[in-house]
Measured scan of single mutants.
Amino acid sequence: MGTYKLILNGKTLKGETTTEAVDAATAEKVFKQYANDNGVDGEWTYDDATKTFTVTE
């Protein structure tokens, strides 16, 4: 398990959240659902060194 971070750079929603997941693929699924639930759809990037996903609208 590891802690993964999501940085939201949406047009109307900005912020950060974290999740505990077994791997990056699992964290990505959780974060994409979170972003979708909050109406954020954009370009995704992932930094393996910091376990950080970023979505920018």
Rank of each mutant, 00 (worst) to 15 (best):
N38I: 06
V40T: 04
T3Y: 09
Q33P: 02
Y4P: 00
T52K: 04
K32A: 07
T17A: 14
T45K: 13
Y34W: 08
T12F: 15
G39R: 08
A49E: 12
K29I: 15
N9K: 15
V40P: 02
A21L: 03
T54D: 03
A35F: 03
K32L: 12
N36W: 10
A25H: 10
D37C: 05
V30R: 08
L6C: 04
I7S: 04
D37E: 12
K29H: 15
E57D: 11
T3A: 09
E20Y: 09
A35H: 01
V22S: 12
D37V: 11
L8H: 04
L13G: 13
T50F: 06
T50E: 09
T45C: 05
A49I: 13
D23M: 03
A25K: 15
K51Q: 08
E43W: 08
T56H: 08
N9T: 15
T54L: 07
T17P: 02
I7F: 07
K5C: 04
T56L: 07
A49Q: 11
K5G: 03
A49S: 10
L13P: 03
G2C: 06
V22Y: 12
T52Q: 05
Q33S: 15
L13T: 07
W44Y: 02
E16L: 04
L13S: 13
G42K: 01
L13W: 13
A27L: 00
T12I: 12
D41M: 10
W44M: 04
G15L: 15
Y4S: 00
N38G: 04
A35V: 11
E20I: 15
N38H: 15
E57L: 05
K51F: 13
V40H: 04
A49W: 15
L13V: 13
A35P: 01
K5N: 07
V55I: 10
V55W: 04
N9A: 09
K29W: 10
D41F: 07
A25G: 11
V55N: 02
K11G: 10
V30G: 04
K29M: 14
Y4F: 10
D41Y: 10
Y4Q: 00
T3E: 11
Y4W: 08
T26I: 06
L6D: 01
G2Y: 11
K32F: 08
T45V: 10
K51E: 04
A27S: 02
K11Y: 09
K14R: 14
Y46K: 01
K14L: 11
Y34M: 05
V22I: 07
A25W: 12
T54Y: 09
Y34V: 13
N36I: 14
G15D: 12
A21P: 01
D41V: 10
D48Q: 11
D37A: 13
E57N: 04
V55Y: 02
A25S: 12
K32Q: 11
K11H: 13
I7K: 10
K5P: 00
N9Q: 09
E28W: 15
A21C: 06
N38T: 12
D47N: 08
K32C: 04
V40C: 05
F31S: 00
L13H: 12
K11F: 09
D41R: 07
T56M: 07
D23V: 03
D41I: 12
D41C: 05
T52R: 03
D37M: 11
Y34T: 03
Q33I: 12
D48H: 15
V55T: 03
G2D: 11
T26S: 15
V40I: 15
V40M: 08
A24G: 05
N9S: 09
A24W: 12
G2K: 14
L6Q: 00
V40A: 05
K29C: 04
V55S: 03
V30M: 10
D41Q: 12
M1V: 11
T56K: 07
K5V: 13
A27E: 00
L13I: 15
E20R: 08
G39H: 14
K14Q: 13
D48T: 14
N36M: 13
T19D: 03
A35Y: 03
T3M: 09
D41L: 15
G15I: 15
T50N: 11
G2H: 15
E16D: 06
V22H: 14
K51N: 11
G2P: 06
Y34D: 02
T50R: 06
T19W: 10
T12Y: 15
K5W: 08
D37S: 09
L13M: 14
G15P: 05
T3V: 11
T50D: 05
L13Q: 06
E28C: 06
D47Y: 04
E43T: 12
V40D: 02
E43G: 06
E57T: 04
E43K: 08
T3R: 09
E43Q: 11
A27Q: 00
A25Y: 15
V30D: 06
L13Y: 14
Y4A: 00
T17L: 13
E57R: 02
K29S: 12
T45Y: 14
L6W: 02
D48V: 10
Y46W: 04
L13E: 11
N38S: 12
T26R: 08
L8V: 13
A24I: 11
T26K: 06
D23T: 06
D41K: 11
F31P: 00
A25I: 13
A21F: 04
D48N: 11
T3N: 09
A27P: 00
Y4H: 02
L8T: 05
T12Q: 10
T12K: 09
E20P: 06
I7M: 07
Y46N: 01
G42Q: 02
Q33V: 13
E28L: 15
M1A: 10
I7H: 06
F53H: 02
E28N: 06
V30S: 07
V40S: 03
V55L: 06
Y4M: 01
T17R: 10
M1D: 14
T52M: 04
Q33A: 13
G2A: 15
A49N: 08
L13K: 09
T56V: 12
W44Q: 01
G15W: 15
K14S: 15
N9F: 07
N36A: 08
A35W: 03
E43F: 10
V22T: 11
Y4L: 01
K29D: 09
T26Y: 10
T50Q: 10
V30N: 10
T3L: 13
E16C: 05
D48M: 08
E43M: 10
T18A: 08
Y34K: 03
G15K: 15
K32T: 07
K51C: 06
T56A: 08
V55K: 01
T50C: 04
N9G: 04
E28R: 06
Y46D: 00
N36T: 10
T52A: 04
K5E: 03
T26E: 07
Y46R: 02
K51V: 03
T17V: 13
T18E: 08
K5Q: 05
T54I: 06
D37W: 06
E57Y: 06
W44P: 01
F53T: 01
T26N: 09
A24C: 06
E57F: 10
M1P: 15
E43S: 07
T3I: 10
T56S: 11
D23L: 04
V30P: 01
G39M: 12
V30Y: 11
A27M: 01
Y46Q: 01
K29N: 15
W44A: 01
K51D: 03
D41S: 10
A35I: 07
T52C: 06
A49H: 10
L13A: 06
I7R: 06
T45G: 07
T12E: 08
A27T: 01
T3C: 06
F31D: 00
N38Y: 11
N38E: 11
Y4V: 01
G2I: 14
T45E: 10
G42W: 04
T52P: 00
K51H: 09
G10V: 15
L6I: 04
T19Y: 13
V55A: 03
A21M: 03
K29A: 14
T18M: 10
K14P: 06
I7E: 04
A25L: 12
K51L: 12
A27R: 00
L8P: 01
Q33E: 09
T50M: 14
D48C: 04
K11A: 13
E16K: 05
K5M: 11
N38P: 01
T52N: 02
V55R: 01
V30L: 11
I7G: 02
D48P: 11
E20Q: 12
Y4R: 00
